[in-house]
Design a protein around this nucleic acid. Sequence first.
DNA 1: CTGAATCCCTGCCGATACTG
DNA 2: CAGTATCGGCAGGGATTCAG
Lengths: 122, 122
Amino acid sequence: MAHRTVGHPAGLPDDPHANAGAPAPDCPVEITMAALQGRWTTLVVRELLRGDHSYSELRAALTGLSDKVLSDRLAQLIATGVVERDRRAGWPPRVRYALTPRGRRLGPVLQALWDWGSQPEH
Amino acid sequence: MAHRTVGHPAGLPDDPHANAGAPAPDCPVEITMAALQGRWTTLVVRELLRGDHSYSELRAALTGLSDKVLSDRLAQLIATGVVERDRRAGWPPRVRYALTPRGRRLGPVLQALWDWGSQPEH
DNA sequence: CTGAATCCCTGCCGATACTG
DNA sequence: CAGTATCGGCAGGGATTCAG
């Protein structure tokens, strides 16, 4: 049991599946990074953690975010199963965006990112 | 105390400092994402979680990673305080790369990323 | 052995304009 | 209200070459 510098709770890095010598798209870490990647993405998720929003509510909350990028991000988050779109019939068009259960589970992940980023340098 | 959909342990999203309406470089989440951003970055960190490595050891472990990107990644990780370089006098040049204490604290972060990415879709 | 410098190509993202 | 279409600038990163 040679050089196990520190104990790891699960999966990392002693998991048998954790032996990628190259960036594999099916690596769990890559999957999560891909879901969160891109400018504004984490902010959109954080906004939706507060509750569901309409398109224009998101745009108002995230000042500086353009239409193109917002729809790109929403499409990305829907594709990764983080967000679901609820379109209701009638006029004017009413669309609501909300986190899926999977999306809500990003809370602890963002929390871990927040915690590390808040820690002092050394 | 209107619509608090779920309790949050700390910082997110009810932290007073968590009100950025735009991508702020000083946001803790952005700091962590910036440290981990870029292809190969998480794999380099994961490799170093196993112990310190020489330059060529890293290159051997990460098949397909080019010199340019590896030195870019090491510079990035050193700049963000994740990795430290230990250069020893003599010939041939011997250099060792190891995680700083701060870098070792990325373990739980990668674990959180891994966990989310391993979860079933719904 | 340990990198830095260069070249080039691709994809991201911001701005603007337009549609159902 | 809720998006899509198009374009252009710029940075990321892969291959190759050169240097300490």
